[in-house]
Write a protein that binds this DNA or RNA. Structure first.
Length: 477
RNA sequence: GCCUUCUUAGCUCAGUUGGUUAGAGCAGUAGACUGUUAAUCUAUUGGUCCUAGGUUCGAGUCCUAGAGAAGGCGCCA
């Protein structure tokens, strides 16, 4: 690979240099004497224009330059006389690395629907939109690791296969090595299975992360998460990536501070490092909204929305206040909510969350101190006896992006809650040990990576921010 | 899981109250063109109208079932 230059490294300063680039043809504009190839290697959204003197090249080479084919081009980088680029490559020597039959190659130099591109998910990274999204997704991933590393957090690899079915975060996928094609009507004998007991794919690394926090102080997990829920929405995947920090000695306020700081850090990192991708996605969104009625459009363009999040303090409200705001809202009094806000203790529906974020505050909102009966067993009971120290970070468009809490560190309280909610103390005795031996107050939260990438890229469907989406009835590639 | 909508050329879509031989743009192919920017211009190929039944003299259009997709809701990240 010696001598090859990636396109994102090119610069007008390199004009006059002999270089070698490799990439895939986006478009080929052919005419008798001079032709133009847009070559993209995925290192940047910007394709490099290769200029070909048609008299210099064999017909065999020219005929195989098609949309999708891969080339090695050697030539001199020069200042461009065209308007849309500052520099271009005068092609001297071209090698066709891989042919592409234009008759059957599905990606055309034109606008495709996201639905169609989902059906060719193996090739969609070759489009501007998806290469931008995946570069931004990578930037988010990198920023997350950097954020935590800079603050002395330890990355814990929590297990993907778990024997605990008590996490309570949703339906689980079973993992087995039993011959499923050959199971009789009898009860399954799990003692014959690989782990000698029923096991599943993880729905959350939190309980394991807590074990790490109660030894290493600050830890985080960042791994795949699996939910077998039959959710058919633009915000749910059966396989997604979740970031779960867990911090010893943090109370719920420290927890909220960290969540806000982290989200701002990641978004700022993307703003600072993925500018051309964001500009592309912003224009794509403006373009797609051109024909929509005003109410269906975003109030502000993408980059403005991102800067707004970075530059404004998140609004923090307790459930009680949020409940009052919602129940006194015109929307509620006029019966415009599908689910009326009437009795204290109900869980908010997404229409209520959107009202708070998009109509009332027009800002990201953190709601905390939820009624205990709608939250999980491990959340710390507040002194009022009816709420727990839980918090949800609500974002415009994507809704709940983070869910977290201060954990119940008092053994007797935790055991009482487990009893009430029918969680097996025996199965989670390892978890309870942290409360038996040197318990401390601690907190944590879960961030859905795809929902964050959705917000940052403005993509409407979560299936378009993960390379290979898994959803009910769909597991391809 | 529930509700609604959609499925017509490789892609994006049009197709009138059910009426003859199903259309357009783009892509592809052939050609033209000295600098293009999803190049342009000329010509042209391309159809199991999602599948299976049914109603009708006649179905892309109506009815039933199924498959797939999208949007909304619930569950959540």
């Amino acid at each position: 690979m010696k001598g090859r230059t990636k396109i994102f490294n090119l610069n007008t300063k390199d004009a006059g240099n002999k270089i070698v680039v490799m990439g895939w043809v986006r478009t080929f504009r052919k005419s008798k004497n001079v032709s133009f190839v847009s070559l993209n290697d995925g290192s940047t959204i910007n394709s490099l224009q290769v200029v070909l003197d048609m008299n210099k090249f064999d017909e065999k080479i020219i005929d195989n330059i098609n949309t999708g084919s891969s080339l090695r081009v050697e030539g001199e980088l020069v200042k461009s006389s065209g308007k849309n680029q500052k520099y271009e490559l005068l092609g001297d020597n071209i090698v066709i690395l891989g042919k592409s039959n234009p008759d059957t190659y599905p990606i055309q130099p034109k606008k495709h629907s996201f639905e169609f591109l989902r059906e060719v998910a193996h090739l969609r990274p070759r489009t501007n939109t998806f290469s931008s999204i995946f570069r931004i997704r990578h930037a988010c991933t990198f920023a997350i690791h950097k954020f935590f590393n800079d603050r002395g957090f330890v990355n814990i690899h929590t297990p993907i296969i778990t024997s605990s079915d008590a996490e309570g975060a949703g339906e689980m996928f079973k993992v087995t090595s039993l011959d499923l094609d050959n199971i009789s009507g009898k009860m399954v004998d799990y003692s014959k299975d690989f782990f000698s007991k029923p096991v599943s794919l993880t729905v959350s690394g939190q309980l394991n992360a807590e074990l790490g926090a109660l030894a290493l102080s600050d830890v985080y997990t960042f791994g795949p998460t699996f939910r077998a829920e039959n959710s058919n929405t633009s915000k749910h995947l059966a396989e997604f990536w979740m970031i779960e920090p867990e911090m010893a000695f943090y109370d719920i306020d420290d927890n909220m501070d960290l969540a806000e700081e982290m989200l701002k850090y990641i978004i700022k990192y993307v703003l600072d490092n993925c500018n051309s991708d964001l500009i592309f996605l912003e224009n794509l969104e403006l373009d797609s909204e051109r024909n929509l009625p005003q109410i269906k459009r975003n109030e502000n363009p993408l980059i403005y929305r991102l800067k707004q999040v970075v530059n404004n303090k998140f609004i923090r409200v307790r459930y009680d206040e949020a409940f009052k705001i919602l129940s006194n809202s015109k929307q509620n009094k006029k019966g415009k909510f599908k689910f009326k806000i009437d009795e204290w203790g109900i869980d908010f529906q997404s229409e209520h969350e959107r009202y708070l974020v998009e109509k009332h505050f027009k800002n990201p909102v953190i709601v905390c101190d939820y009624p205990k009966k709608i939250k999980a067993f491990y959340m710390r009971s507040n002194d009022d006896g009816r709420t727990v120290a839980a918090m949800d970070v609500l974002f415009p468009a994507v809704g709940e992006i983070i869910g977290g809490s201060q954990r119940e560190e008092r053994l007797d309280m935790l055991e009482r809650r487990m009893q009430e909610m029918n969680v097996s103390k025996k199965e989670l005795s390892w978890y309870l040990d942290t409360r038996r031996f040197g318990t401390v107050k601690h907190s944590g939260f879960g961030l859905g990576l795809e929902r964050l990438v959705q917000f940052i890229t403005g993509m409407k469907n979560i299936r378009d921010v993960i390379p290979f989406p898994r959803t009910p009835g769909s597991c391809n590639y």
